[in-house]
Design a protein around this nucleic acid. Sequence first.
RNA 1: GCCGGAGUAGCUCAGCUGGCAGAGCGAUUCCUUCGUAAGGAAUAGGCCGAGGGUUCAAAUCCCUCCUCCGGCUCCA
Length: 642
Amino acid sequence: MSDVTVTLPDGSELTVPEGSSVEDVAYEIGPGLGADTVAGVINGDLADRHDEVEDGDRLVIVTDQSDEYRQVLRHSAAHVFAQALQRLHPEAKLTIGPPTDDGFYYDVTNVDLDEDGLEEIEAEMEEIIEADYDIERVERSREDALATFEDNEYKREILTEEAAGEETVSFYVQDDWEDLCQGPHIESTGEIGAVKLLNVSSSYWRGDEDNDTLTRVHGTAFESEADLEEFIQMREEAEERDHRKIGSEMDLFSIPDHSPGCVHFHPPGMAIRRELEEYIRGKNDELGYEEVWTPELNKAELWKPTGHYENFTENGEMFNWEQDDTEYGLKPMNCANHAHIYDDTTHSYRDLPIRLSEFGTCYRNEQSGELSGLLRVRGFTQDDGHAFIRTDQIEGEIRDALRIVQTIYGDFGFDISYKLETRGEGAVGSEDVWNNATDALKAAMETESLDYDIEDGEAAFYGPKIGIDVHDAIGREWTVGTIQLDFNIPRELDLTYVGEDNDEHHPVMVHRALLGSFERFMGVLIEHFKGNFPTWLAPEQVRILPISEDQLGYAHRVKNELGDHRVEVDDHDWTIGRKIRAAHDDRVPYMLIVGGDEAEAGTVSVRDRFENERDDVATDDFAAHLETEIESRTIEPDFIGE
RNA sequence: GCCGGAGUAGCUCAGCUGGCAGAGCGAUUCCUUCGUAAGGAAUAGGCCGAGGGUUCAAAUCCCUCCUCCGGCUCCA
């Protein structure tokens, strides 16, 4: 018998007899590890402990101490769910049930489920766990499996497509129940310490909206009840972070029923938006952008040459209508208008780059089910900008944009990730042109030493895109800023500049939005800070709290001394304790408490939202600090303890 | 758009086996003038998301629509 050699995580190699399983290798390493083996990771993919290793494989042994263990446990929990479901609803058809980052789901059909039904199933799951059934892997012929799923077209499809060409397929059996599955799984149902079914929603078979609608049940599982408790608590905290809740508590914005997907900014929310606008204006100035403004309402023909019209009307995404025998529309993007401004005069190669920026309000008729607070809306204002450049200016232009993006997200303390979206269906322009543009973006990111994921086929129709992604409170990923490189629209619109050679050339367009849209950015910003905005952004930066009515006059004098900032005097007929409580609830960074002593001494007593306090502060000192703190965009109030 | 859930006072919610629309917080007024996370009392506030139906009687049951929430699909 010949041997095979596998590479272990520490880089060492181990030679084992051919036909050895993951578990055999583990025993070879040590009997303790062998006994603890739950599964393996072969060349990056989870594998059953009985799976054979092949020569050259990279192997990681998974025990109940491994990061992957929870994934295996949750996959088994999905099986326990499916078994419980079929005990209570034998007619239910199973499709797929994988683990996810924070739990598992199972897509089922032919059964009606609601929240009450979930409780019943959860109770049944507890019994299955209590019974501690062994989970065993059984190999069966594909023919046999097909016969088993005579009336389950989904499992049959998996067998005829994914498992095409396989002689045998694996089933996992627990008690009298089994499921077609590649595994791996834990040894017995009793290993699951805690399960919870979270909600019932829906999905499409294979994620395609032309396919059948399935019922998706989300759940989660942990090694212990304590871990589950922690998870539930984290979810509750995430709910507290929800920008819709905070937005209403802080009176930042509303999205009334009469304007679905269109945000009404209230004065406190607009204060934040204005700060963001001024901040970005500053960045655009640094980058050499000139601000313009273009209208939302245009004739539909504006978007026809570029392909925007076709792209945005295909799925009804553009608001457009006939009026006086002419078709009009609301702009879904700003580039066509900016291209017009560029094209309105002639340009020399010496003039380039020409950079136009606009806080441009766009409208897109997003599907009703997609709307979500500030994060997905129908009317939004991009901090948009288009640079018209020569090909020799591409690298510098993209790198400048990437650098400023890093500064900006650093200023807010955001964790961001980059992605590169490449040419997809419906793209305009030749593949060569796209490859050049994509390579240019890659080169710029690599020069800047940025890590990025590639998302094939996800780009806009006119050019490849760098997306800057951040997470919301419940872990959903949203693209905020973007940088896109476009060789196509300048050709389609025949935009030109006169080169050194006295010939006309097409410029290259860089489309970029640093924050993305003010709406989405504010949504993630609210969740990021949980409403506790840095002083420079806080709608109310300082609240002055007089101890009694006698100090109202002094309180207003202090307000005047603080200059042009967002300062309020609390003139309620409340006790000081109540005023402090209210200021904390309103997330005001600084409270200045003024009583008789302060009025006499000309001082203030400072309290910040962390409950730090300092008495007998000269008003000037606080005013000077406030100025500096706002100027430097400090994330947390730091007058006390600096 | 699809599947499921939900819409009651400014906010959070109770009432929903049909029978006079409720609470807490907030707001207003009065008392209190207070020293570091909610002082006391009183008052006001509602087309029970909209429209239709069943019924002697509908917040409650049925239908249609609107909006929101969670997924899916799609995107800044």
